[in-house]
Write a protein that binds this DNA or RNA. Structure first.
Lengths: 126, 126
DNA sequence: CGGGATCCGATTCGATACTG
DNA sequence: CAGTATCGAATCGGATCCCG
């Protein structure tokens, strides 16, 4: 059903491992991908993000947004200087390269959930 | 270039987030995907895996293999009972459902590496 | 060879309180 | 509103030693 997309040779296999580990080092935390998903629905404000990304604290959200901006995945825009300040976060074009990753993880997460609940059911769920 | 695969409605967006977080909770560590990649080249022994998954300690490898077996991603087979024992790990059919995830992460990891080194080069690297 | 046991540092993450 | 500061718990992961 699924062909192995991973090269068989030791050398190329090590290359795949390095790329996957690079990706995981950056995306591995609990929050980065959920934040990207929330922003995929359009630009959002800080408070709005905190509501949609269930369970995140202001501290973590702030930290993750900084890292995502540093890596060009989103842009930060300050709307007004006077209090109350308004800041908008927008998913950058470059950030959309994560959609395939999110899709693959979403599909597998769904499959695995059904697999855990009633084993041998993934044939019909895939 | 890339259509947003994530639903726009709040409700379905939350569903995508939950699935991605489920997947990340399980795959998020440093080692599970690299182990799967190594096993994608065929069944391997414990020591052999430790050599191919660069940097992993015996403790971590043992722990991760146990979790992967519990989740039906691989099977463990004891070849000989007499010392020295020989144990073989084989990627299960169900484990191959992770190939799309690995592919997506590998592609993005590669892209992001080039992006970090010389920005604005991802148009040609994709 | 294939691990388990123990100890330990490093990092992640959350709760709470506070600021411009 | 949009964060920052501080504290502390929990988890992650490595080093080392040990066993069948």
């Amino acid at each position: 059903m699924l062909q192995p997309p991973i090269p068989i040779t030791h050398h190329e296999c090590a290359g795949a491992m390095r790329s996957v580990r690079d990706a995981l080092d950056f995306l591995g935390g609990k929050w980065k991908l959920p934040i990207i998903i929330a922003l995929s629905g359009g630009p959002k404000r800080f408070k709005q993000l905190q509501r949609e990304v269930t369970g995140i604290t202001a501290k973590m959200l702030s930290k993750e947004l900084k890292e995502l901006e540093l890596n060009s995945l989103l842009t930060r825009h300050v709307e007004t200087q006077a209090a109350p300040v308004a800041v908008t976060y927008t998913l950058a074009d470059y950030g959309e390269h994560l959609y395939p990753v999110i899709e693959a993880l979403r599909i597998w997460g769904q499959l695995h959930r059904t697999h855990i609940m009633h084993p041998a059911a993934e044939a019909g769920a895939a």
